[in-house]
Design a protein around this nucleic acid. Sequence first.
DNA 1: CTAAGTGCAAAAATTTTGCAAACTA
DNA 2: TAGTTTGCAAAATTTTTGCACTTAG
Lengths: 149, 149
Amino acid sequence: MQNLGWKRRLTEYIRTTGGHVTAPRLRVAEVFFDMDGHPGIEELHRAVEKRYPGTGGATVYRTMKLLCDSGLACTRDFGDGFARYEALDPAGHHDHLICTACGKIIEFGEEAIEELQEHVSRRHGFQMRDHRLDIYGLCRECAKIEGVG
Amino acid sequence: MQNLGWKRRLTEYIRTTGGHVTAPRLRVAEVFFDMDGHPGIEELHRAVEKRYPGTGGATVYRTMKLLCDSGLACTRDFGDGFARYEALDPAGHHDHLICTACGKIIEFGEEAIEELQEHVSRRHGFQMRDHRLDIYGLCRECAKIEGVG
DNA sequence: CTAAGTGCAAAAATTTTGCAAACTA
DNA sequence: TAGTTTGCAAAATTTTTGCACTTAG
């Protein structure tokens, strides 16, 4: 997976900004990319502390901001009172089918949709850099259970 | 528009919960649905205060939570450090061009994209109920300033 | 009348920032 | 060595809560 690539990509990004590749940054990133799901800062900080005691909370915040700036992660709002982070597979899609019943998330990519997005952007004089498409509804199984449709 | 419907829908919802339809709630809702865009609490509170002085900030928070619970609105994370609210027009669009430089948000609707979403959903046996499309990039003005492509 | 809601201010929770020490390049 | 990053704690922000008073039903 991405686990092979994040270190190189992060290092590359830090270099371009004239920054330093430090141990705390690599530790936070490593723990983050080893985790599944969408940890918030507190959960992530706990996990980092467990593997590498002595890492400050501010560093976790700052490192996650770095990962977001570099495009390796992004924040997602799940309605909790805090930010949660999602690992971004560079070549991956940002399109999801999200089942509101069971929470399952299906990733997909649709070239035609991306082309239309470009099209719409240009029409508004907008320079598209990235996108996120979330479709909410019921997956096959849950639709069956709820006996709808 | 929805402006005709929110009052009835809100009243209905409040009744089902055994709550009271109060003046402050109606004021906040009215100002919110009269606004365009995606106000945060502070912006909304200012607008409410302007039209109906003496409305407390906590009431704005509590009323927006009520609107979200009732399905008339929802929160959106636009990367500012606070929650912004979006009016949910039952028949409306949830598509945005978001400028990562100046924060401007342009709403749009593209029938062709929606059709493709339906298409993709069906292909995955997914029953689409709602969607969110956010396109990030630079608006015309910011692209000019940054002198990019 | 009773239960729910309001406004204010205090409290809680999350995120950012200042700074001396430590570290990368 | 020069400039960046860290960890801590303090500060800033956003959101929630306690409470006496008011209001809807």
